[in-house]
């Protein structure tokens, strides 16, 4: 396992059930240090003040969208190295390309499985080392 199980993770999604699913799946992977936010605007101050090690975000949310959160994170000198995994229903090729260009570390399309989540998280932290 390439990642530290005590790492602090922020889960951002406007649907509480999806946050709950991700939280439960992370707990199965031994990752229990999680917090939640329901859109980018709520997530940003948490990220700026919270010493998070990993960000998992949806794309389509009211308020600040996930892609804008990603751009803001990458533009912030204190956050620009934060690993970001996008978990979203947005499936257009141009969107995936845009997310990649904005510096996303992983992209999962919904609906997804526990195995895919584990695989992507492992891959992200392997690459970062």
């Amino acid at each position: 396992m390439a990642y530290d199980k005590s790492m602090k993770i922020l889960i951002v999604d406007d649907f509480s059930t999806m946050r709950r699913i991700i939280k439960n799946l992370l707990r199965d992977l031994g990752l229990t240090n999680t917090q939640e936010a329901d859109d980018g605007a709520t997530a940003l101050p948490m990220l700026q003040n919270g010493n998070f090690d990993f960000l998992i975000t949806d794309w389509n949310m009211p308020g600040m969208q996930g892609i804008d959160l990603l751009k803001t994170v990458r533009a912030d000198p204190n956050l620009n190295t934060l690993p970001v995994l996008m978990v979203t229903a947005e499936a257009k090729r141009e969107q995936i390309v845009e997310a990649a260009q904005c510096g996303v570390n992983g992209y999962i399309v919904k609906p997804f499985t526990a195995q895919i989540l584990e695989e992507k998280i492992s891959k992200i932290f392997e690459r970062i080392g």
Partner: peptide
């Protein structure tokens, strides 16, 4: 812009499943 899940499986401008995403990202 954003549109949520793509239902139409014949659409060429969208991916259909995680394998498509992975292939697209690895091509990048």
């Amino acid at each position: 812009g954003v549109e949520g899940p793509v239902i139409d499986k014949t659409r060429q401008d969208a991916v259909h499943g995680q394998d498509d995403v992975d292939a697209l990202l690895s091509s990048l």
